[in-house]
Design a protein around this nucleic acid. Structure first.
Lengths: 243, 243
DNA sequence: CAGTAATTGTGTCTGCCGGACACAGTAATG
DNA sequence: CATTACTGTGTCCGGCAGACACAATTACTG
């Protein structure tokens, strides 16, 4: 598994030249997943698109789970290079880049959950996310936790705004809004705060992304300032809360 | 779908007495999911446990997706009652309660993703989450976004610390740590910050949960104080950043 | 240069899955 | 009592992941 993700080619010896490569298989799978969702990716479907028999794929990949893992790391791609800057802007830009990636390949939200072996691109994203957080006074564990909380937020916002073809009970955004409105109308007494909150909610695009991100960054800012200020007494500037 | 989730019984007329009820079906499904994971829940398996034929289930439920939706809302349960208190403690306790729920039924993390019709229990959780956030100066949309960012964090932390039986490539926590350590050892040059961060990371249980939660609450605190202070000029106390 | 051995893609097969459909039995209604 | 609506059953289908035996192809070895 790790060997597959990290592209350790086993160095051909004898036997026929392979008609397909792991990269081609993964690329075919990614194309299907992008176009029709992860559920449309079956071994048969991938094989048909190459074209080759289904069982031929098993010469290059142990099973479907491993194929999806390779697809995922490949689709994730390298994080875009960004110029250095203040940690907050760096982390903010990184979060938006991550969000864009999930929007480009919504199925990554399904395939990259739970414990799994990490591929080179996924690690590169984490590495890049840490870029602004070195030398701000956080411990290593805190740096990783900070990346994690930002990632969580980005993932769930992307999940919310994405549609998974064929996956669920196929609700459009309007369907869901309407059914929620109906329920809140008939059951208003049970959910007074929810009724009040939704009635005054504007709900523009990506509003949730920026809101949560700013709160998280504010919270990190507070921690970082406390770490810098206390041991060194260098700066005790008041917190300016707006970016 | 909505009718199923909200338990609108169609009021029996004629024909044989049903041998099973929707609640029994859902309970059987929940038992299987708790014990062996969501992937072990098949119509056949649920039917066998009742016991009844597979096709009998379809008299009570339109399809598997709907069954899982009913299971999910049922397993979520009602949020525990908590006494009133400061918004921060209320929200903190709510987050922990939510986390406990996901730990009790890890498969909820798989089944409650993406756009879906919301059931009574899920709405009740949201309603309860809003408990501390009314009257702190946030708009309705901001209240919902605040709940969302906390939920995201809790979900992803729970996801990280949960094991999904039969779902993925079956990695234990040690497996993953070890393979990561191997990779970081051989590829240290590519991931210098990651190597540095992991080497000093302690990694105790639920550390990530509390860290992210405190950052988010700190960020919300900052926003709330700005909202309370600016329009009313009631209090302009300095921010005490430690809980 | 011939023979062996390793590796490739193919075809066939199994078991499981969700779900469609026709059917027989059952209970309330006229 | 006859009709009618509803329940659970049995059979069937297409699609899925994957096991296994087989023939073809290539490189290494004597």
């Amino acid at each position: 598994m790790t060997e597959l993700l990290w592209g350790k080619e086993p160095a051909r010896t004898r036997g026929p030249k392979p008609a397909i490569t792991l990269a081609e298989i993964a690329a075919a799978g990614i194309a299907i997943a992008d176009a029709e969702g992860l559920d449309a990716v079956s071994m048969q479907r991938v094989a048909d698109d190459l074209p080759v028999t289904k069982m031929a794929l098993y010469r290059h990949v142990p099973g479907k789970a491993e194929l999806v893992a390779v697809m995922s790391d490949l689709a994730m791609g390298s994080p875009p290079e960004r110029p250095d800057g203040p940690w907050r802007e760096t982390l903010h830009t990184w979060a938006i880049d991550l969000y864009d990636g999930f929007v480009r390949h919504p199925w990554l939200l399904q395939s990259t959950i739970g414990r799994r072996p990490l591929g080179p691109n996924e690690l590169a994203w984490i590495e890049r996310g840490l870029a602004g957080l070195v030398d701000v006074g956080l411990t290593g564990g805190e740096q990783l936790d900070a990346i994690l909380v930002v990632t969580s937020h980005v993932r769930n916002i992307a999940q919310q705004s994405s549609t998974f073809p064929g996956h669920s009970i196929g609700l459009t955004e309007e369907d869901m809004q309407r059914s929620l409105a109906e329920i809140l109308h008939t059951e208003a007494a049970r959910f007074p705060r929810l009724v009040a909150a939704t009635s005054t909610a504007a709900g523009s695009e990506n509003q949730g992304l920026e809101f949560g991100l700013e709160r998280i960054l504010d919270g990190l800012d507070l921690l970082i300032r406390s770490r810098v200020a206390v041991p060194d007494r260098i700066e005790t500037l008041p917190v300016d809360r707006r970016r």
